[in-house]
Design a protein around this nucleic acid. Structure first.
Lengths: 213, 213, 213, 213
DNA sequence: CATGAATGAGTATTCATTCAT
DNA sequence: GATGAATGAATACTCATTCAT
């Protein structure tokens, strides 16, 4: 697979600083120019180092990009991304769990909106990016499917649905909505968006909503 | 900006034939290599004409692509794409209307799957493609929103939903699901997919389903 | 294997002219700078064409070089190179045959001296060149070995010698002497060189020389 | 031009050790990758020192290579390389002297085969290497020429030969044969090779061979 | 209309060498 | 002495586009 300098290994303080400078510059250039148009030259220039220095830390543009999205991906996964249903908290209603998951996902997406959009672009041209995206999607879907199955067994969700199918489709709904929202120009009130997506989600699997949602 | 020879105008029979050859070759090359990697050279070679001939008919790669996409887009729109709810037919239940719309959309998507996927890719790099995609999305959303509003007024759909928001989100669900399905490796039974998406759609806006769905 | 435009195929007169210009320029640049230091840029400049034009006709520097030495190689082989003993002419004494072979080889070598020297260099860095050199050597050695065997059977050559071994060693003597001669600064009278090498060759396999050699 | 740290001068024990490590690593890298492809980076890595340390001891890649070659050259010269005819030993026949010289040369060549081959390569790209090779050749040729002249004066060698010419040509034969042998894939029995080359050498200058050769 | 030769701008990448720590 | 981060010159190669024939 594509390897870069093990970040944080065998590097002096100076090396770590330069690596960080490059990574920050890379993020900004990718966000500004997109994956395809981003040039190593610009990244090095923005970081204030010579072109060759880029290669001291990263094998190629692709490798650097993968490292960048890897951190975003972790944040998304940790933040309960793709509408994954986290373990319900003490005394929490299902619809509250779903609302919480959606809020988390949209928050994380908004935080990394530009890079998420670029990631989608890169996924059409770079194998590693595509695999990471597919992989994230699957992990989220699995968690959601498990929750839906649990609700079905508890008799609160529509028994006609295939949990895996529903998980994939509803995950697609939330993530694609976030993409359209943040990549496009349509402004939405954040809480309204959370509420509407949660209503759709709950309705879709037929679990009851509480008064406030 | 993005003009090509008015297709079918001022062209001799020979010219029309060559233009068609190039367009067919272009479609195959785009489908095979993607938007970014497709080369004029390959298109001309596959069409069996000299490289220079390409420019007799198309200003650039982008222009040809837009023309290709344009026909697909028309087909999708005509086929009631993006889950647009068509005018209900005589004596049709709402859920039947929705099922019909989903079936139409997925059928059209499947027919043009490869180019649809490439279109998504191109939309991240080419302004015209992106605008066409956004435009299609909006047209579909408008039609769906109108239908949802009608259902709400008839008292059969969830009044808590913002029709426009729901239309966009559910359109995203269907189109993104189709993308994941046809671009990826997960096989689904076609009728199952129609059914499941229809169930989710109907549930989401809380309109009742008939026995068979 | 490495391919270039089939020389002389599917090319217009103009194309053929340009190809020839590049080939001539290539030969001069290789001779002047050696294989490793030769730059595509210089070749194109010397041919008076744009850099990109080089790639219209040759895949790479290596491919062009191989085509250049291929013609030299044919000339050497045709010219009875590497001291190969050609079919004796009517009423020719063995020593005369050998003298003729040496004269031919040295003549061909002198004609292509610079490129022969570069070939030796290229052979240390480019697989195709090395194989061609090895192949030439073997072909010459085989022909010489056959002649030596014939002489042994006729009772005129030293029976203690292994014909193949002697052919390789004496071929090495002649070709390496030519290399040292033409690559270095030691001047030799051409006929003297032919005579001396012939004496050594004849002596080495113990066939008698005529009065004039 | 090509000066390196006077080996063994003004260096601490630690310095001497590091220098030795680099030299050993250099030899291995040159043998493995050839002169042109050898990288300072690899040499330093293999020696287990920082890249910059290389320059504490050697001005450049060329300088280090010349130092490596220099020791090989001394060994070759000491070992009576390039078929130089050493002072005959007490009661030794000329053919025995020649056989001894050939055996010594081939032994030394075999011992340093890889580096000898690289040396030939380097000689086509590096002035110092080329001069050292030419110089070695000349020294050997001079010694051989002297011996041949002596044999001629003693009436045992072909008087038609130019001693200098014959020395160069026969030196070329032996050294080139060794190159082809050790650089290529043709296996030869060591003693057979010595015998055959000696027979050719003796025959070539027409001195009689004893029973066993 | 068709041809296909010619163009040349645009960029990633390597690696010997330097030098501040 | 040793380190290893930083430098930046140097160059091959691609491909969309033009234009003379």
């Amino acid at each position: 697979m594509t390897t870069s300098t093990d970040p944080g290994k065998q590097l002096t303080a100076r090396g770590l600083r330069t690596r960080k400078l490059l990574l920050d510059a890379g993020r900004r250039v990718f966000e500004r120019d997109g994956f395809a148009a981003a040039r190593i030259t610009d990244i090095a220039d923005l970081a204030g180092v010579a072109h060759g220095t880029f290669y001291t830390y990263f094998e190629s543009k692709d490798v650097m990009f993968v490292e960048l999205i890897d951190s975003v991906r972790e944040e998304m996964l940790a933040g309960s991304a793709h509408t994954v249903i986290p373990e319900a908290e003490e005394g929490e209603e299902p619809w509250q769990t779903i609302a919480r998951a959606n809020r988390r996902y949209l928050t994380a997406y908004r935080e990394n909106a530009q890079l998420m959009v670029i990631w989608e672009q890169a996924a059409t041209m770079n194998d590693a990016s595509r695999e990471m995206l597919t992989d994230s999607r699957q992990r989220f879907a699995e968690r959601s499917a498990k929750a839906i199955r649990r609700y079905q067994q508890a008799g609160v969700a529509d028994p006609d649905l295939d949990p895996t199918f529903a998980a994939v489709a509803l995950g697609a709904m939330v993530s694609r909505f976030a993409y359209i929202w943040f990549a496009g120009r349509e402004p939405h009130d954040f809480e309204d968006a959370v509420t509407q997506l949660t209503v759709l989600w709950c309705n879709a699997i037929r679990i009851p909503r509480g008064a406030s949602a």
